[in-house]
Design a protein around this nucleic acid. Sequence first.
DNA 1: CATATAGTTTAGAGTTATTCTAAACTATTG
DNA 2: CAATAGTTTAGAATAACTCTAAACTATATG
Lengths: 139, 139
Amino acid sequence: MAKAARDNSKAIQRLRGVKLRPTRQRVELAGLLFKGEDRHVTAESLHEEVTSLGLRISLATVYNTLHQFTHAGLLRQVIVDAARGYFDTNTGDHQHFFLEDEGALIDIPGDQITVAGVPVPPAGLAVDRVDVVVRVRRA
Amino acid sequence: MAKAARDNSKAIQRLRGVKLRPTRQRVELAGLLFKGEDRHVTAESLHEEVTSLGLRISLATVYNTLHQFTHAGLLRQVIVDAARGYFDTNTGDHQHFFLEDEGALIDIPGDQITVAGVPVPPAGLAVDRVDVVVRVRRA
DNA sequence: CATATAGTTTAGAGTTATTCTAAACTATTG
DNA sequence: CAATAGTTTAGAATAACTCTAAACTATATG
């Protein structure tokens, strides 16, 4: 029954669930990231968002937290751009459109794309993940 | 009938073919890149190779040249690692294994992998390329 | 074939994204 | 509520590029 807009109890639960101490910074970031629909952020974009909301979290902490969340399975890193790292709140099976002109990502549900014919990896190696990136630009 | 080992006439032909002046640096780099089988290089790795052969090409020129070759269609850039850019001498239709432990790439022939169900891109956008990266690590 | 010129190369400075470091801070435990 | 183990932070450091302006060179031209 707490005020919905600032209710961080879900974020705290989520952090406890993955054994991360619910510090003020982690709670605020988790609150932003997991509040609504799936999101794609970069460390800089998230830091700007945080700052524009009047919250105070250092950029280093944003980087640390994004990586901790990723290791904990709360986020997934998407590699589409050599210049910048993206983090995706959707950790399920899915793929991406990457809009090269504006550096934006759009999810493609995992049941929509099928990849067939992936060869057996060289001896001693196991497939970790198969990433599909559909690069699009202005027609 | 020139000495095979240092015969750069093919490299020069190739450069002329894409309207790039065959400077000493470009000829030497093209010679290394297109001499034999397909290769995957980073700017740093190629620069080290060049240097270890006693050739003298600045790192800036290696970067410039890799990009020029890419624009000319002689190379293709592969994005698999947030930290580093890879260039592939195989510009045809194909995909990659990425060995995460050692940062190496292995080609997967284009006729082996099939991607089905790619959705129509959002209005005004056209598919540029569909990249598949099979990330593998020690089993 | 000498030379003008447009294109190229380079060292080194600059930039950008990210990581490191060591000191200050804080959530949890007893 | 103090001890302590884990966190955060500013600022320095790093890594991978990119830029700049001056020196150089392939090619066209007289």
